[in-house]
Structures are given as C-alpha cells and as structure tokens.
Amino acid sequence: MLTIDRATRDAIVAHARRDHPDEACGVVAGPVGSDRPQRFVPMLNAAMSPTFYEFDSGDLLRLYREMDDNDEEPVVVYHSHTATEAYPSRTDINLASEPNAHYVLVSTRDGAEVDGAPIDFRSYRIVDGVVTEEEVTVVDGYADGSTPEQQKAES
C-alpha cells in the first residue's frame, strides 16, 4: 500500500495537469527504509513528449547525489499518461529500475487535465517485469506518531 499526504498527491496531480498533453514525471523522496514519500521533486521531462518521459541525465545524477547526501531514496516515482489509462505500459514495465519504489501513474485523458475534474491516481510495484497494483491511502499529514486522519483516494 502507498500512503501519501494530500499536499504531495495534489502536487503530483497539478504537475500532470500543467504539463498536459506532454507526460509529466518526478519523484517523491523519503528517508531510506521509511516508505514515507516526503520530499516532492518534480523533474523535467527531457523527452517533452505526449507518449514518453525520461529524466535528463544530468538532472538524474544531481537528484541521486542529493538523495544520497540526505539518506533518502525514491519512495515514489511518478509520471502521467495523457491519452491512455493510468496503468503501466510495456515500456514502463521494461524500464522500471527501482524495485523498492511505488510507481504512481496519473491519467489526464478525457478532460482530467482540467482543475477539479476527477482524475485517476494509481500506484504499482514493478519488480522483474511483474506489475502489482496497490491501494493508495491519502492522509492529511504525518503528525508526530498520532494516527492521522485517513481517507481513501478517490479513483
């Protein structure tokens, strides 16, 4: 299961809408081993394409160095599909290289690029070519050990 705070979820959706009809991409970093997506890092889609995304190689190196320095890992790797469903494509599966990450897909097709429209926000594990969808739980925050109010993601 992916547990993500509302502000970060909303930031991913806003990024996907802003870049529509091109695909948007980025990561949410978190402390190694915490499984907590904490630091939202929108990335430039160097491919600037409606059907493909790729981090620029220089940006990629800087991102991973930064995460290393902060003892972080990419807890979420997200991107949007802009004309198809929020499900990993064959390409997504072939290129998935973070077995510990939650792969989040957002679809901005069919008018979902408009602010306020319903939007698919789904999460998957992709390990050795096998896709497993998982539940997304949106929380208001990660208050100090207290149980945050939880709400299922609309999907």
């Binding site: 695909e23 991409c25 990561v27 990335m43 491919a47 394409s49 409606p50 059907t51 493909f52 995304y53 790729e54 981090f55 190689s57 990629l60 190196l61 991973y64 990419p74 790797v77 991107h79 599909h81 802009t82 004309a83 198809t84 990993p88 494509s89 064959r90 390409t91 997504d92 290129l95 998935a96 290289s97 973070e98």
Partner: peptide, 17 residues
C-alpha cells in the same frame, strides 16, 4: 544509474528519437 524513463507509447524508442 539506470534511466528513469517510460511512457504510454509502446513504440517507445521512436518517441525517444
């Protein structure tokens, strides 16, 4: 570092140029 890449297209490599 493996590329962080993907996308909707199946003929991905054409899209990537």
């Amino acid at each position: 570092l493996p590329a962080v890449a993907g996308g909707a297209a199946d003929p991905v490599l054409r899209a990537a140029g």
